[in-house]
Amino acid sequence: MRYAAAALAAVLFTTGAAWDPEEPPSAVSVKVKPGTSKGTGKLTPIAGADRLVAPLGVDPACPATIKIGMRSDARKPAYATMNVEVDPPLTASRTMLTSYLPPGYELGAKLLVAVPPETKEGTYGLRLRTTDKTLSVPVDVMPVDRLDNGGNLALRRPVTASSQHTNANYPPCSVVDGDRSSNGWAGGNGWNDATARAWPDTIAVALGGAKQISRVDLYTLDTERYPASRYGVRDWDVQAQVNGQWQTVAQVRGNTAGNARSDFAPVTADAVRIVALASNGANDYTRIIEVEVR
């Protein structure tokens, strides 16, 4: 049930319209891939990557993520279980993965790996165990300065936002987690402010020192169910913090697309701030998936 209560209050009755915070959209992480079972009865652990890079000292609301899963070569559908072990002091969002699994199916789910602040740099072990096989995935713990950021100066840097919606998982740090995809909205991969129909909303990324920048790419919510033309940010200013002062370096107006690139004359800035001024309708929130700075 979504939205109905707010509308009822506003419409059916004349006094004191209640405002019910709307329920968040689905953010499931399970993905399956059908296939043909070999009929061996085996359950094989799988991982979405050979290694996982886990940055040190980042906001715990945005841990490192990796796809984990399992593949069934059973003859019949079953509820299958895989154990997840990680070397301390790292912690994982699941100690086991249990799911219905038709034969031949491969199932993937999201695993979050958190790095406590006292963790030493180095390589740690993540092990995915079924009764048939153990898959080991090395986890490289390193400081943000050593990450391969592909030129994106915002990647994994500290983020501050004017507010954060709390009815699902919308951490500000998610706009610099390196994931541009809108998939998994409300599950920790984007920021949603807490102030419906109130503007502006701001989100700022500290660049870890003065850097020369000339381009900002903003990715707003855009899926088939939540298209940017209804759910995305429409108008915003791009600001750079130069010598402690915020200055507007670019403006975007009337955006209806999932992403927009702003180029501007190079400035040397300590931080970049998005000042959101309007969205494309649905409840008038700011919804940002990723901000990249070059």
Binding site: S26, A27, V28, S29, V30, P60, A61, P63, Y79, T81, T91, S93, R94, T95, M96, L97, T98, S99, Y100, A109, K110, L112, A114, T166, N167, A168, N169, A186, G187, G188
Partner: peptide
Amino acid sequence: GNRKVPVPEQFRVQCDTLD
């Protein structure tokens, strides 16, 4: 949330698997 009762990190992600 409204209860202000802390829950473990495992609750951040939406329910999808049986665990």
